[in-house]
Amino acid sequence: MNGLRRSARVLFTLWWLQLKIVAVSAFDGILNVIYPLFFATTAFLMFGQSGNPEALVYAGLGAAVMGTWSAMATSASGALQSQRWQGTLELLVCAPTRLALAVLPVTAALATVALYSLVATLVWGRVVFGIEVQIASPVAFVVALAVTLASLATFGFLLSVTVVRYRTGWALGNLLEYPGWLLCGFLVPLDLFPGWVQWLAQTLPPTWGMAAIRSAAAGQTPWGEIAVCAGLGLGYAVLATILSERLVDSARRNATLALT
């Protein structure tokens, strides 16, 4: 019980500390709000040309959640690289706790800040483009959103631990930004893709999270999608925890922790 309490304390303290750091970071805080707005604006202008108000609402909701993926793909994979540049990665690895407990709060803080982006995009769509996103089931919507963000945090956790061993691992996160936007159903319905791409999309938690958010907004039952999203998030967390131990061992053996 004491161990569980200690772990919870580490998670909460680090999450709060990281949240304060990230919230005032120009790159992870401010840019993660502004950057998705450019893509959302482009999407709104494109869907606006179609003259279909329903398509615009579809894009409005999708574009809002899209920014949360950016916060994970780019920022989470760069989070530990920043620690490496600052010379604190070795301290993080040497901390007297599991690496998973030290890294997961970092990506959880990024996921929390991603809420800025979501709200900013919804407000932007409403004020500038007149897109009214109706939420038929607010409680289910909030739950779907929370589970999506939590699963994104665990996915980001998986991305970030690769940087412990591979110093160019952050580029993987940059690379994943567009594929994630494309595959998770934010702006493009999955049935436009070939079967194998749809199958691949089903392995990503935000695909289910986005579907759940849309269901909740439309007043349908999102609980099945929420459960799958949570399950996938948990799966990624387990995978990242196992991987983190192995990658740290490898990084120690190959002395790559301090390499910039």
Binding site: A43, M46, F47, L172, N174, Y178, L182, L187, P189, F193
Partner: peptide
């Protein structure tokens, strides 16, 4: 390891993203 994903692959996905948004719209 940085150049190929960032400079050569990412732009292809940017093209795919907007081409598919264009198809969707």
């Amino acid at each position: 390891y940085i150049y190929v994903p960032t400079m050569l692959i990412a732009p292809v996905f940017q093209i795919l993203l907007f081409a598919y948004v264009g198809r969707s719209a």
